[in-house]
C-alpha cells in the first residue's frame, strides 16, 4: 500500500497505540488491563505500521524474530518465579519492593509486574507469528 494519508497517520497513531499498551500494562494489577491486553495493543501498532509501509522495514525494526520475543517473554515469566523460591515461600507469591522516588511518591516494583511483562512479550511474539504466517510474509 502506498497511500500517503495512511503512512502519515501510521507515524503518529503507532506511538499512541504503544502508549496505551503501556498504560494497560502498568495499571493492570488493580484496574482493567494487564499484560495480555497490552501485548495485543502493541501488536496492533506493529501490524498497522506494516500495512502502511513495507513489511520488510518492519521486520528490520523489530531486531528479533517473533520467536525471539516468545523466548524472552517465557524467560521473564521463569525469572518472576525465582524470588518466591529464594525466600522459601509458595511458588508465584507476589513479592513487592518499594523504592522512594522523591516527590512523586513511591515506586512499587514486584514479581507480578515482571510476570505481566513476560506475558506482554509472549503475546507480542505469538500474535506477530500468527500475522506473518497468515499473510504469508515469513
Amino acid at each position: 500500500m502506498n497511500s500517503i494519508i495512511l503512512q502519515l497517520a501510521a507515524k503518529y497513531v503507532r506511538f499512541l497505540l504503544i502508549f496505551f499498551a503501556f498504560v494497560a500494562l502498568l495499571r493492570g494489577h488493580n484496574y482493567p488491563g494487564g499484560g495480555f491486553i497490552g501485548g495485543l495493543l502493541a501488536t496492533l501498532a506493529i501490524v498497522y505500521y506494516s500495512y502502511a509501509f513495507d513489511w520488510r522495514s518492519v521486520q528490520k525494526k523489530l531486531f528479533m524474530k517473533p520467536q525471539g520475543y516468545v523466548a524472552v517473554g517465557l524467560l521473564m515469566i521463569l525469572l518472576s518465579f525465582s524470588p518466591s523460591l529464594i525466600q522459601d515461600e509458595t511458588l508465584m507469591k507476589g513479592i513487592w519492593v518499594s523504592i522512594p522516588f522523591g516527590l512523586l511518591g513511591q515506586l512499587k516494583l514486584g514479581t507480578p509486574l515482571l510476570f505481566d511483562l513476560g506475558v506482554f512479550m509472549t503475546v507480542i511474539g505469538v500474535t506477530l507469528l500468527f500475522f506473518f504466517t497468515l499473510t504469508k510474509r515469513r
Binding site: L44, Y51, A52
Partner: peptide
C-alpha cells in the same frame, strides 16, 4: 479511545 484506534486498523486490513 482504544476502539476508535482499532476499528480504523480493521478497515485498513
Amino acid at each position: 479511545i482504544i476502539i476508535s484506534l482499532i476499528s480504523f486498523i480493521g478497515t485498513v486490513a
